[in-house]
């Protein structure tokens, strides 16, 4: 099986993970920018798209990718939800950063093109990718990489009620109470909003989850549900309060975007229904 990577605005980390996986799966790499080989439009069995669209050039490349290859895979959180590269959306609005800024509104490729498979996470673990590669090379239909679970389901910390709806962004890990959920301790942890499967290494060590894995299946499936709304509902349910006042306090205490740093330009995170991700998720 021949594969290639089309890299848009990205850090290139997903390619590294894919390179690791491709070695194990024994597939032929026709193009991969970190190996000094750009994809130049040739047809391959699987084309992986990494990164976020931030320029006209990217739009052209993405257009070229459409229908050229056997399967089209959105590789990583950037391709699925914008990821760190999608933060260009925030930057583009700032006067200082607008100089020389991207020519188009940053968008995740998954919002623009129909993909066969979405593999969020930043980056997806090589083991997950080698499984995907062997499934694809057998000509089989890949399983959904979406688990129903969130990061919380793998977190060793126990939920112990909540102190209030005003959350701190961070706390020194040495001041974090052993074994207790960070949200319970009043620290903003994105575990409940984030797709599980990473093993929750961050909250396990007292560092809040910043949501690098992408959105949980629930956040994707419920149209227009913003991450901050979901968090407010959760906290309100546990804290025995109404959702609106929980939301108000949350919005007062945490800066905008900090609940969806890795999904800031995704239609879902921006509460715009109709993302192409939804039908895809149902099909998988």
């Amino acid at each position: 099986m021949r594969i290639a990577v089309l890299s848009l605005a990205s850090c290139g980390g997903c390619q590294q993970a894919l390179l690791q996986a491709a070695g194990e799966a024994g597939v032929e790499i026709a193009a991969m920018p970190i190996l000094g080989r750009e994809w130049s439009g040739e047809s391959v069995d699987v084309l992986f798209v990494e990164g976020c669209v931030t320029s006209e050039h990217h739009l052209r490349l993405l257009e070229q990718a459409r229908g050229r290859c056997g399967k089209l895979v959105a590789l990583g959180t950037c391709a699925c939800f914008g990821g760190p590269s999608g933060l260009a959306r925030l930057g583009a609005s700032s006067e200082e950063l607008a100089r020389g800024s991207s020519s188009v509104e940053p968008r995740p490729p998954a919002d623009l093109v129909e993909f066969d498979v979405l593999v969020p996470r930043c980056p997806p673990p090589p083991s997950m990718l080698s499984q995907l590669l062997s499934t694809l090379s057998r000509g089989e239909r890949p399983r959904s990489v979406y688990a129903e679970s969130t990061v919380c389901s793998q977190c060793p910390r126990a939920f112990k009620g909540i102190k209030g709806f005003r959350l701190e962004l961070s706390r020194d890990p040495s001041d974090v109470e052993e074994g207790a959920c960070l949200l319970s301790q009043g620290v903003l942890c994105l575990g409940p909003l984030t797709l599980g499967g990473c093993g929750a290494p961050c909250p396990a060590a007292g560092v809040p989850c910043i949501g690098c894995g992408g959105l949980s299946a629930k956040l994707i499936a419920v149209r227009g549900l913003r991450p901050i709304d979901a968090l407010a509902s959760l906290l309100a349910a546990i804290g025995g309060s109404d959702r609106d006042s929980a939301l108000r306090e949350l919005e007062d205490s945490v800066p905008p975007h900090s609940t969806h740093l890795f999904t800031s330009c995704s239609r879902i995170a921006l509460s715009k229904p109709g993302s192409r991700i939804l039908p895809l998720l149902r099909r998988l």
């Binding site: 933060l87 260009a88 930057g91 950063l97 991207s102 962004l169 740093l261």
Partner: peptide
């Protein structure tokens, strides 16, 4: 620009 600096300034 990918504005990763935004991530650096917003992350805990």
């Amino acid at each position: 620009s990918r504005w990763v600096t935004a991530l650096l300034s917003l992350a805990p």
